[in-house]
């Protein structure tokens, strides 16, 4: 009896809740850690990035306007669906990062747990970061955190799932919408995560994932006037130039570090506060 020929997947971008190919028609070869061919991934272009920004902007009002409880449930649902895909994620992480099956599975578990952790933050941020202000006058005065808007995320190049989740989930938890550029050499977990997002009640356009080269797309996103913030995590040597470009529209910038952070460490609020604004409202007290 002959062995079954497997059905292979076409790897595409995730923009506006749909899975388009790159408008440029470009793909690039993805190999595993030993250099063996794995797939042809879509090689996102400037135009794809701009389409993704349009989608993210369009989704912002709905996502930021949803109740924090609702956002929390939607994000928790993502973790539920990730759990069902754990084996697939583990295989991709093992192949891409050259990890043992056990270590890859541990990274997947940590990624799912990290997502759950952020899902639980949506309705606590206001209490932790906001509050009432005892002003010296007859006013009720309160401050609340609000999402910045559209955030471009250059995902880490090495940690293809735990790192990816650790930069995407905080942006979504704040109520921002995201345009993410995956690890260039290890894009498969980002594509699988796209499929998870597409099947877990996250509205189209809230998270847009592009595979390709952050060094190529990053400058367009850093300059783009309709992008409000940028996480430079995976920017590598281009980080300084991107921060300069981002200054042109005063984007909120989360800087990168020379080495990728220890993704297993408790991140605290450090990846959420850069993409939160604070609104203070004054109202008179009187009869």
């Amino acid at each position: 009896m002959s062995e079954r020929i497997e059905v292979r997947k076409t790897y595409k971008l995730y923009v506006g809740g749909k899975f388009p190919r790159s408008e440029s028609g470009r793909t690039y070869e993805v190999t595993d850690s030993r250099g063996r061919f794995v797939a042809n991934a879509a090689w996102a272009s400037r135009k794809d990035a701009r389409d993704a920004v349009v989608a993210a902007r369009g989704a912002f009002a709905g996502w930021s306007g949803a109740t924090a409880y609702n956002r929390g449930q939607v994000l928790y649902r993502v973790a539920e669906v990730m759990e069902g895909r754990a084996a697939q994620f583990a295989a991709e992480v093992a192949a891409g990062e050259g990890l043992s099956e056990t270590k890859a599975r541990a990274a997947v578990d940590a990624a799912i747990d990290r997502w759950v952790w952020y899902a639980g933050w949506t309705d606590k941020l206001a209490a932790v970061l906001g509050g009432t202000n005892p002003v010296a006058g007859p006013y009720f005065d309160f401050s609340v955190p609000e999402p910045t808007g559209v955030v471009a995320v250059l995902a880490p190049q090495r940690s293809s799932l735990l790192g990816l989740v650790s930069v995407l989930a905080p942006v979504l938890a704040t109520g921002c919408t995201a345009v993410l550029v995956s690890s260039k050499e290890r894009p498969l977990p980002a594509i699988t995560l796209s499929e998870v997002l597409a099947t877990s009640d996250v509205p189209g356009g809230v998270a847009n994932l592009l595979t390709g080269d952050a060094a190529e797309i990053g400058p367009w996103l850093a300059e783009h006037a309709d992008v409000d913030g940028i996480d430079l995590c995976g920017a590598g040597t281009t980080a300084m130039e991107l921060e300069r470009s981002a200054a042109g529209t005063l984007k909120r910038v989360l800087r990168t570090t020379a080495e990728e952070p220890d993704w297993t460490a408790d991140p605290g609020l450090s990846r959420m506060t850069p993409f939160l604004e604070t609104k203070t409202v004054w109202h008179p007290i009187g009869v």
Partner: peptide, 9 residues
């Protein structure tokens, strides 16, 4: 209106 207890920005 301004006050030192009230975040501004």
């Amino acid at each position: 209106q301004f006050d030192p207890t009230s975040p501004f920005g």
